[in-house]
Design a protein around this nucleic acid. Structure first.
Lengths: 116, 116
DNA sequence: TTGACACATTCCTATATTGGAATATAATGC
DNA sequence: GCATTATATTCCAATATAGGAATGTGTCAA
């Protein structure tokens, strides 16, 4: 059996967005599609770096590409972030007071039901 | 200047939860505090592995420790996940139909305002 | 066809990471 | 003190990663 140092980033959305520059790319694409050079310029990195990050994002399904002449326009596919959203959301009550009160209320209702 | 292969996991919540076993630990601790051995058993890993993951989680502020005799009980500090929640939430409208419709409605209101 | 441009890929290197094994530390019981 | 238990740390090996540089590929225009 082989030992893996870390799950391949390309197969896991959580790892894909663990890299700050990749999050920055997604934030840029939220405004609309962009070419690779646009992205590289915005990030202040060279084109190959941008291409590499985009490949990772593409492989986990967070972006899609549209080819037009020489350029490739990348577009956000934000639904790929849903697994992360779903996961963190289960913890939201820990800092959200409104949810906290709702939970307390539901707990109270339950205890009243039992007491009947 | 030195070249960094990846931002140190210990300084970034996103990286800390990029590791599946660490997410699993947080999920376990959501039920209540646990000792290191409890966690190691639940994950099916040896104690040193659990300790290492817990150290990372501690350093990014996602868990805290309570010492009691020989044991250390780890407790979830879920508020540390808020940055992740806040970040993904800005993308929620991309898969949430209700938010989508709300956005469309607001856009419509805005265009009406302009037209006045 | 040739050159320029946009992008992707490959090779290389320094560093990070995980997991295993061994060892250190600290508390507790005898 | 000594053994035991719970946990942390260190050392090691295998692999993954990001970034740089160089190179490949495809498109367009002259």
């Amino acid at each position: 059996m082989q030992r893996m140092a870390r799950m391949a980033t390309t197969s896991d959305v959580f790892n894909a967005v663990a890299e700050p520059q990749r999050r920055q790319i997604l934030d840029l694409l939220a405004q609309g599609e962009l070419s690779v050079n646009d992205i590289a310029d915005a990030l202040g990195v060279r084109q190959p770096q941008a291409s590499k990050h985009l490949r990772v994002l593409r492989e986990v399904g967070l972006v899609s590409v549209r080819e037009e002449g020489k350029q490739r326009f990348y577009r956000l596919h934000g639904a790929g972030l849903k697994p992360i959203h779903d996961w963190v959301q289960t913890y939201e009550h820990l800092w959200n007071e409104r949810l906290d009160r709702l939970e307390a209320y539901l707990a109270e209702l339950q205890s009243k039901e039992k007491g009947k």
